[in-house]
Design a protein around this nucleic acid. Structure first.
Length: 475
DNA sequence: ATGTAC
């Protein structure tokens, strides 16, 4: 399908509804950020998503949108559950509950002496499990413990001594998404997950030591627990082999069941089933379980960071917030004048609740939900907050967004050279592999400063703080 | 993203 974009505002483009599309496509971006690489199918994917049964309002793309499996990464789409709306694993992604967690340390950058920082990076480099396969911080004894973790998420980790109760107040859904169905997670997925709780993985996943560089909104920042020049830790990781296996298993089931529900798709990667059907319910139960695995994973990694901070610097870390940016959630939104029960897919997009939303903890009610926007290696990251009037079902961007393939990135720079460049700019690097490092070169990504500005310009979220990297432990 | 392929 040829894609024709209409500029509605400098930050909002429209793909008119045609052929099999049931709703229009809406792309929040500046001209500069629109996917332009030859062969980039991201906008075609936005249009494809608009053909899904039960889809309402529009198929949305965030400013960091880029090509993904079936749905674009940076895509948001909601379906009406009571009108045959579907759920699609491709609308969540292979890395279910991939997300970001930000912790704030009890010291400022000025109080961080070089020797202490070196000790910190060395301990993190030694103790944070990362890379393909390999072990995790918490080897579970067996499938029964895993079932409990899949239901309890970060809460299960805290109950077993990995964290403090206050952490859960700053986790989306208090650390555990409801409706997890461990029975819908295959034996194979469980086996893959048993030894990986508390591990970064690879690709764009990382644990970064950062410092607050600028506050756009000191009041909101204070509510989040952020102050000028403060040292922070940002963790970006997901549900490892377990989430990947859950996606693989359920895509296969849905692909085979498409004809049973009379679903016709422009792309088989959009495999889906009605939310109100056995395959739909089973997937959502397995997805919630994998989401909880991802949250427990970030909880364990937070504890490793805390131990490193205590040992190296004698200070602790308070959780600012933990968000998932690969999830589907049942939410009620008003569409065409009436509240409707929707299945909101966010793939490479975060929820962005505005101030006063009932789902927010009391101490965040005035400031809104922290929206965590990691940049890429060596670049800034942003903390934003939700705004009222966000028609993309209260969603915002999730990061910089890739513009160059991994293969292409490898041709531009070698890992050894990239590390030397970053170290010379004052960013300590503890890589997992030279190749993995090179694939993550900042050149391969959109400019996160622009993505954050456009996200605000488009009215999706508002800037609160800018963070800059001091040291990165790379997955 | 992913024991980078059933």
């Amino acid at each position: 399908m040829e894609i024709v974009l209409t500029e509605e505002t400098p930050y909002r483009f429209r793909i008119e509804e045609r052929e099999a599309m049931r709703v229009p496509g809406v792309v929040f971006a500046s001209r500069e950020l629109l996917p332009q690489a030859a062969g980039d199918k991201a906008l075609e994917q936005v249009a494809n998503v608009a053909t899904l049964p039960g889809v309402v309002r529009a198929s949305y793309a965030m400013p960091d949108v880029h090509w993904g499996y079936g749905f674009p990464i940076g895509g948001v789409a909601a379906t009406d559950i009571d009108e045959g709306g579907v759920v699609s694993p491709g609308g969540v992604g292979f890395d279910i509950s991939c997300g970001v967690r930000l912790l704030a340390a009890g010291l400022t950058r000025a109080e961080l002496d070089p020797g202490g920082f070196q000790r910190l990076m060395d301990i993190l480099g030694r103790t944070v499990p990362r890379g393909m396969g390999r072990g995790g911080l918490w080897e579970l004894p067996g499938p029964d413990a895993m079932d409990d973790l899949l239901v309890g998420g970060a809460r299960y980790a805290v109950e077993h001594g990995h964290g403090v109760p206050r952490d859960l107040e700053r986790c989306e859904d208090s650390g555990a998404l409801e409706g997890a169905a461990p029975g819908e997670v295959s034996r194979r997925a469980v086996e893959r997950g048993l030894g990986q709780v508390g591990s970064l993985g690879s690709g764009n996943h990382f644990l970064e030591v950062q410092a607050v560089d600028h506050l756009y909104d000191p009041d909101a920042a204070a509510a989040f627990g952020l102050r000028p020049d403060q040292v922070c830790v940002m963790i970006h990781c997901g549900s490892r082999g377990l989430g990947h296996q859950v996606c693989t298993d359920h895509v296969k089931v849905m692909d085979r069941a498409l004809h049973r529900y009379g679903i016709h798709l422009p792309d088989r990667q959009l495999a889906c089933a009605p939310v109100d059907s056995a395959p739909g319910r089973n997937y959502l139960g397995a997805m919630a379980a994998a989401a909880n695995y991802g949250r427990a994973n970030r909880q364990l990694l937070s504890e490793a960071a805390r131990r490193a901070f205590t040992t190296a610097l004698g200070t602790g870390l308070d959780l600012v917030y933990d968000i998932s940016h690969n999830m589907a959630k049942v939410e009620t939104h008003e569409v065409d004048g009436r509240p409707r029960r929707l299945c909101v897919h966010r793939k490479g997009a975060t929820r962005a609740l505005p101030p006063g939303d009932p789902d927010l903890p009391e101490d965040l009610a005035g400031a809104g939900q922290p929206v965590l926007v990691p940049g890429t290696m060596g670049t800034a990251s942003y903390v934003m907050t939700g705004l009222p009037g966000n028609d993309a079902f209260r969603s915002a961007c999730h990061g910089a967004g890739r513009v160059m393939s991994r293969h292409q990135a490898l041709r531009t720079v070698r890992g050894e050279r990239l590390r030397a460049d970053l170290e010379s700019k004052g960013v300590a690097v503890r890589p997992s592999s030279w190749r993995g490092l090179a694939e993550e070169t900042p050149e391969a990504y959109k400019d996160v400063d622009v993505v954050a500005d456009v996200t605000e310009g488009a009215g999706l979220a508002r800037l609160v703080a800018r963070l800059v990297p001091l040291g990165v432990v790379k997955g």
